[in-house]
Design a protein around this nucleic acid. Structure first.
Length: 459
RNA sequence: GCGGUAUUAGCUCAGCUGGUUAGAGCGCUGGUUUGUGGUACCAGAGGUCACGGGUUCGAACCCCGUAUAUCGCCCCA
């Protein structure tokens, strides 16, 4: 309160994280990274090239691609005006941005493109478990291929990825065809006719859906709707010969790759897509009801979904271009994977309690010594970090819990070139001395008796 | 956008019917013990009981609002 004291800046109330955003740390962040690492490994096996597209685009990119579903466009996108007065939107999906890039960069010149990306997406929705406003997806697309082989390759890639992540039993691939434009339109008309006939039996929600998005009545959860939906006609009755043949080839291709109907996937003749640029293949990987996966995911059940969208690129003003792709929520996948091993540094460098000014004349420069020694070890690809806080025993405990393999305590300086260290292994039978000496030429340990070693660490 | 539940220490949570100074475990800091190690004991720091109003002699507890999380609905590109 004295006048002479400089005034402290006023402490501000800490700004809160935005609703629906996440901060990830520790095991959670490790699982997240593990999903991405696995995706990158697997997509390279299939020859999918990495692509990067902007996080924001002209609003038209998404508004046009989403077309009629005005609710999504008007209420669930992060749309804003920039300083130049242009309407921009944070990407709510990958496909539209990739399609835009394909058109504006003339990527047709590369022929059939197999592309993969991942990153943050933004949707203004009410958050729930596994559902965020900034969330992250993996994405794989094949652009320019009209053949069912492309659908098959994507499906096999998806299946491979899930197995790589350890998500095997208890998750089922549900597969359907929406047919070509003609089949789809006919089925849609048939559904409308059916539902209109039973309008009075439907829930209020579904009566509204009948106007807006009649195909969605098929996956209503309202008990009043379920019998009506079950009595509705399947797509099969409306499939053209061409569309039927396409689906046959997808099915045969999957079988050839070892994915057999009934065993590895199931036909779901009621799986639908609301947008009318979707054609032919539509699929979702969904955890089985009552499985451990379903438990962990809550209401957000689909972990990977996709389909063929032959009409989209044309919708965006490009040439008619067949394409197929899928996306998967990284957060949801991360909820399902086992915790990967901690990537703790192999060694922890620390000061022994007995280091004094007498035995370590330049003890006031210990931080410089630490920098030097750690750089030598790191140059030899040995991972190490330092920890000098708290009591020695607690440091050992902390390092052990973090998953490090040994501690290196600096005891005293021997001479200009050498310091005396004590190696404390944290896991049984770990030969830390051999681990260092086999890798490092500039930081070499020599036995100095009673568990101590001389560390030659002259640069 | 609609409905339910929750929010107490850094974390996980107790806290009776509204009643004195708010509790534990873990974690953190220090000490003793141990002395090639995942020990035990002792002590300490750490709280605007989410936030803002209200009722009451008195509120962590009851009521209203807000925020966030969570469960479901709607939506799902």
């Amino acid at each position: 309160m004295s006048d002479t004291k400089p005034e402290r800046p006023k402490k501000i109330p800490t700004p809160r994280a935005i609703r629906g955003t996440q901060d990830m740390f520790g095991a959670e962040a490790a699982r997240f990274e593990h999903v991405i690492d696995s995706f990158n490994r697997v997509r390279k096996l299939y020859g999918f090239k990495r692509v990067e597209v902007p996080v924001f685009e002209a609003t038209a990119v998404f508004a046009r691609s989403l077309g009629e579903t005005t609710d999504v466009v008007s209420k669930e996108m992060y749309t804003f005006e920039d300083r130049g007065g242009d309407s921009l939107t944070l990407r709510p999906e990958f496909t539209a941005g990739i399609a835009r890039a394909y058109i504006t960069n003339g990527w047709q010149q590369h022929g059939v493109l197999k592309l993969a990306t991942h990153g943050p997406l933004f949707r203004y929705e009410r958050p729930q478990k596994g559902r965020f406003r900034q969330f992250h997806q993996l994405d794989a697309e094949v652009i320019g291929a009209a053949e069912p082989a492309a659908d098959v390759e994507l499906l096999v890639l998806a299946d491979h990825l899930l197995k790589e992540l350890g998500i095997k039993d208890g998750v089922t691939l549900r597969l359907n065809t929406l047919g070509d434009a003609e089949s789809r339109a006919a089925w849609r008309a048939g559904l409308i006719e059916h539902f209109t006939k039973h309008r009075d039996a439907l829930s209020e929600d579904s009566q509204a859906r009948l106007e807006r998005n009649p195909m969605r009545i098929l996956d209503s959860k309202d008990p009043r709707d379920i019998p009506v939906a079950q009595a509705a006609p399947d797509i099969d009755a409306y499939l053209t010969d061409e569309a039927g043949a396409f689906f046959e080839k997808v099915s045969a291709g999957l079988a050839a790759a070892g994915l057999k109907e009934g065993e590895h996937w199931q036909r779901d003749a009621r799986l639908v897509r609301g947008l009318d640029y979707y054609r032919h293949t539509a699929f979702e990987f969904v955890p089985d009801a009552g499985s451990a996966w379903a438990e962990r995911l809550g209401a957000q059940s689909t972990i990977l979904g996709g389909g063929r969208y032959d009409g989209l690129i044309e919708n965006l003003g490009g040439p008619a271009t067949p394409a197929v792709g899928w996306a998967a929520g990284i957060e949801r996948l991360a909820m399902l994977v086992d915790e990967p091993l901690e990537d703790a540094p192999e060694f922890v460098l620390s000061i022994d309690d007995n280091v004094t000014k007498q035995n370590y004349p330049d003890a006031q420069h210990l931080d410089l010594e630490f920098s030097r020694i750690m750089k030598l070890l790191r140059n030899a690809e040995i991972s190490v970090h330092s920890d000098n806080s708290g009591k020695r025993d607690r440091r050992i405990e902390r390092a052990r819990r973090n998953g490090s393999k040994a501690m290196i305590f600096i005891l005293r300086r021997v001479d200009q070139r050498e310091v005396l260290v004590q190696i404390v292994p944290l896991v049984p039978d770990y030969d830390a001395v051999a681990a260092i000496n086999s890798k490092s030429r500039n930081a070499v340990l020599a036995n100095a008796g009673t568990g101590t070693h001389r560390l030659n660490c002259k640069i």
